[in-house]
């Protein structure tokens, strides 16, 4: 077993691009589901419009990176309005269905050949759109080494910016959810008619929550493609949304740090299981006939699924959740 590569892989998985982007996306989802009770099964759609809004602005219109990111985020505002205006006055399940459909429509449109002139079709954009971000890197141009872990300057720059972003967003969410505004959201989650009877404009608050969570999702999308230095439509499939749900439940719903912890642990588990399976396979412990090298990626997802099932059985509130909250039937 190669312990050095295990440590290095684990570090990059737990603190790398994916963990950052997934953490941010799930913070947005936590606003929707954890605090407001909105069922958003299309968070990937918000990531997609953020990523494409940014990349298209840069590639086709030469917009500066930061301004382009703002454009990407305003696309998420539009998507939230489009989803929320017709559904937020209806029962919760209408939003759920609309979000699934909208996210798939977004993914199919950006990947279609019809708009390929703008979106690059199924091959998307290469990394050039993110040059401005990496050109702004103030770090010395040499790879950093911490024991077995080595980090390139670009990667280090992204991680610094990325985790700062996670911290700032988490702080804002923390401020919001402990305010009277956040109290209305939690009230809506429990029973929106009760909140209405107390003179609160429930529709407006739900709309605000949908927009804020969606914009945070779009930031995650921008972070993801900037970190990966590629924009591909198929990244934004339904499975992405379900990973966000998984890690949110894993970390703990309606806790500010739940999604952050969930993202780190999810990717850590991915990296560790993959390392163990791969070294096991190359050492001959895992017979090739049973599991081929190419199937290892799938096996680790199965293991994560199994782990989540065990967690739901033995710690249903997630890692930092409050068990008492599960004690009563909310409806």
């Amino acid at each position: 077993m190669d312990w050095n590569s295990l440590v290095a892989n684990s570090f990059h998985a737990a603190f790398g691009v994916n963990a950052i982007a997934y953490a941010i996306a799930a913070i947005g989802l936590n606003i929707h589901f954890g605090y407001t009770g909105l069922l958003n099964f299309g968070q990937a759609g918000f990531l997609a419009v953020g990523a494409y809004g940014t990349a298209i602005s840069i590639v086709h219109f030469d917009v500066p990176y930061f301004l382009a990111a703002l454009i990407g985020m305003s696309m998420a505002v539009l998507l939230a309005l489009l989803l929320g205006l017709p559904t937020l006055r209806l029962r919760a399940d209408y939003l759920a269905v609309a979000t699934i459909a909208a996210a798939e429509i977004v993914r199919l449109v950006i990947g279609s050949t019809v708009y390929a002139r703008w979106t690059g079709g199924s091959s998307g954009f290469s990394g050039a759109f993110s040059n401005a971000f990496y050109n702004a890197n103030p770090l010395p141009n040499e790879t950093l080494h911490f024991g077995p872990v080595s980090v390139t300057p670009n990667r280090a720059w992204f991680m610094i910016v990325g985790w700062s972003l996670v911290a700032v967003i988490a702080l804002l969410v923390w401020l919001l959810v402990r305010s009277p505004w956040g109290r209305i959201l939690k009230g809506i989650r429990e029973d929106e008619d009760a909140v209405r009877s107390l003179g609160k404009n429930v529709f407006a608050r739900k709309m605000q929550a949908l927009i804020i969570g969606g914009v945070i999702g779009s930031i995650a999308g921008i972070a993801l493609v900037t970190g990966e230095r590629a924009v591909l439509p198929n990244v934004f499939g339904t499975q992405l949304t379900f990973f966000f749900w998984t890690l949110l439940l894993l970390g703990g719903v309606a806790r500010v740090l739940g999604p952050v912890l969930g993202a780190v642990i999810l990717w850590l588990v991915f990296a560790v299981t993959e390392s163990i399976l791969r070294s096991g396979a190359s050492a001959g412990w895992v017979p090739e006939a049973l599991v081929s090298q190419s199937q290892i990626g799938l096996i680790r997802v199965m293991l994560v699924g199994l782990g989540l099932m065990l967690l739901m059985i033995f710690r249903p509130q997630g890692i930092v959740g409050d068990r008492r909250e599960l004690a009563f039937d909310v409806r």
Binding site: G187, E190, D191, S197, E325
Partner: peptide, 9 residues
């Protein structure tokens, strides 16, 4: 008529 306590608050 059906009481609406906000359970998890």
């Amino acid at each position: 008529q059906l009481t609406k306590a906000l359970s998890r608050l």
